[in-house]
Amino acid sequence: MCVNHNDHPLIVEGLNKRISDQAIISNMSFKLERGKIYGFLGPNGSGKTTTIRMIGTLVAADHGEITINGYNTKTNREKALKNLGAIVENPGLFEYLSGEQNLKQFANLGVDAIDQSRINEVVKLVDLEHAIHKKVKAYSLGMKQRLGIAVSILHHPSVLILDEPTNGLDPNGIRQLRNDLQKLAKEDGVTLLVSSHQLSEVEILCDRAIVIKEGSVMGELDMHMTGKNKDELTVVIEAEPKAEAISVLSSFGEVMDTDQYLELTSQTYNTLPKITRALANANISVYAFSYKRRLEDAYFSLTREKGGIK
């Protein structure tokens, strides 16, 4: 295996899929860096689930290659899948079996034997010890999601793909899930691809985000305030008097008046102090000053760019 695969446990290259003569995925390519958490973003119907199905070999691509840990999913299906854990749309559990029986079912579907201690370990990780002998029928949605994750990490996958895992979770459940996933990435070096519609959620959970639209990758974003990413902030200001504040801020860029706040887009991290100083010098009272990361803006500009607004 070449070095590339060690750094990138999942490589998707030139994927194409037509369903009933309609292009669903066109020339989709991306690769994931090991140990990073990726958001997978895109409007409804943009092809996130279809892409995940192709990675999991549920749907065959018309063209293109998918490589998981160096194994091609077409020519080396079982070896590739051995390195993948995935939940497509819903956890797909056997409702009439207990949590532990579910884990055993999927343990039996692996290549390497999975012993009881590994089962106990994942149960502990997702915090389901108290309910593991109950039938899944009696689980709450959040418990099912967590059991689904336990099932999909049972065999130590290098790549874990989750399709809208926060669907239906309460804020507490979302936070717990986030902690679990970050722990997996950090401690076990698992690489994650998490599709979601919650931009704010992706922003806190992920290191990077892949934005797709109409079956193609529109761009990749870095969630951390490092490097060139620093110059994509939107500054939010509440100040009086407004008119004078706008005239001061205009010298830094485009100002938007959103009733209560003034928003200044496309700012760099380093200019933030200059803005506060300029406002102070003009004797303007500042009541609130903060900045937003650029994900929402970037998402909209990426998904709006080509083909206009749908």
């Binding site: 549920l58 079982e78 939940i87 497509v88 956890p91 797909g92 559990l93 999927f106 692996g110």
Partner: peptide, 14 residues
């Protein structure tokens, strides 16, 4: 129908 087939098909079993 209940979505368990796809989860089984993602596992490395022929």
């Amino acid at each position: 129908g209940n979505g368990t087939m796809k989860q089984q098909l993602i596992r490395p079993v022929p």
